[in-house]
Amino acid sequence: MREIVVISGKGGTGKTSVSASLAILANRTAVLADCDVDASNMHLAMKVEIEDRSIFKAGLEACLDSSLCKSCAICRTHCAFDAIQIENGNITIKSPLCEGCALCMELCPAKAITMKEKICGELYQSSSAAGYMIHARLNPGAENSGKLVRQVRLKARELAAKTGKQLIITDGPPGTGCPVISSISDASLALIVTEATVSGLHDMQRVIALCRHFKVPVAVCINKWDINKEKSAEIELFIKENDIPCFGRIPYDRKISESIFRREPFVLHSGAAAQALCDIWKELNLFFIRKEQ
């Protein structure tokens, strides 16, 4: 199984647009996965239809039975997360702030607090023109995104096995935190989409270090490379010195923002950016052919 995870370090570099375009180029040979569960966007990049949904639960949250509460506020004094607040004289628990440690439940003299499983989001299986897509939505403020990412990946693998697909194209989350680690661990290739800016370079370096640490092979492509050619050259020099292949440069093209608007991956339109994407696709396939030999 080939599993390509598209990541960027910095947000807004065009990760989702690249992933969606690769999905189109795969021509229904891949299962698509959106691991950016905090702000999943791949289902907006193309037209999809949700076929199946399931609830994602993780961790616990405190629940107050106000009929038992004597308003002693011991819970409030001890809560390390400021999740217990007083509103109009009543103790209330702010669900997004509660991390589920259960200290309040243990301390409550009136036994007014219980712990219940926290519903943290939903998991979806959808169909699109490019094939099946597994995506998810983490509830606002919920944590455990790493665990939801893992579920998205497992579901995608399951579906790939079931439908006989040999490829998974994953749109990864931004940053270098826990959800990114969960997205790349054990993947066949991390494709980093960077942009020709100071922060694009800096964040790419951080995410390369992360991939190296987790022993995931890395390749880079530079988006909007011609916005700052000097910065692009700097990026290319850096990756060359670190023996990382550059799979392509995507020129800045105003048609891309137009295509996002119309929910059509930009590779469907003619132009230099679409051509660059086709070249990246070719490089990806060559990479796997060489690797598997």
Partner: peptide, 12 residues
């Protein structure tokens, strides 16, 4: 960025 715990901590 995002809407998870770090975002909540920063806007609170």
């Amino acid at each position: 960025p995002g809407t998870s715990c770090p975002f909540i901590a920063a806007v609170s």
